[in-house]
Design a protein around this nucleic acid. Structure first.
Lengths: 99, 99
DNA sequence: AGCATAGGCAAGTAAACACTTGCATGTCAA
DNA sequence: TTGACATGCAAGTGTTTACTTGCCTATGCT
């Protein structure tokens, strides 16, 4: 099974995708239409449904969101665990991590 | 003076730039020519000098590397502190970070 | 069944990006 | 000063990427 990790770095490169993650941080488990509405109102975005849908695909391929189907609804939940790899790849220099 | 924070997310989106950060993590304070050589040998990259130079500009604009001029040499040092903003923007979910 | 809602697929377009090419500037040693 | 070394600048090219457009499938309600 090829997991196709995608690329969390490329996924984070787009400001619209970062706004999606922001919104899911505030209110997790949203549908595509919910996200469209809330992104438009609260984040000032004017992206179409298809644009958001494609962004969600990229975020899911990167493992940053999970999808859960229920009937005709599809809920999206954020998953921040892949972000740890970033801080671990380039750890803080200077040794001590405490004050 | 306009600091032009750049975009750390866009800066991290390119695999060559990530390799540059990897290399600077191993050996900090390298010149452009040093980086070209070590990236080619140790990371299997075949990027031209100009390509690396442009990548260094992007990384510097994002605040991920610092530059220090000495005579005709220009040394590059890594700065991982902007990476903290990523983990802080989307903190781990589940509330407590302890058991 | 009939219709509205929620979402999916795929081709096409315009802008952003990485990279090249060619020449110019500045520093150091002889 | 001459020449070699280290880097800078800028226009041009090909690919990637975000977005649109148009149509299609599936679920749920009456």
């Amino acid at each position: 099974m090829l997991l196709a990790v995608g690329d969390i770095y490329k996924a984070l490169a787009d400001p619209t995708r970062r706004a999606i993650l922001d919104e899911l941080c505030e209110r997790d488990r949203q549908t595509l239409f919910e996200l469209c509405g809330r992104l438009a109102v609260k984040h000032g975005l004017s992206s179409s449904r298809q644009a958001i849908s494609q962004h969600l695909d990229v975020l899911a391929a990167a493992g940053l969101i999970g999808v859960e189907r229920e009937g005709r609804y599809k809920f999206h939940t954020i998953d921040t665990s892949p972000l740890r790899a970033i801080a671990e790849r380039w750890p803080p220099r200077g040794g001590g991590d405490g004050p």
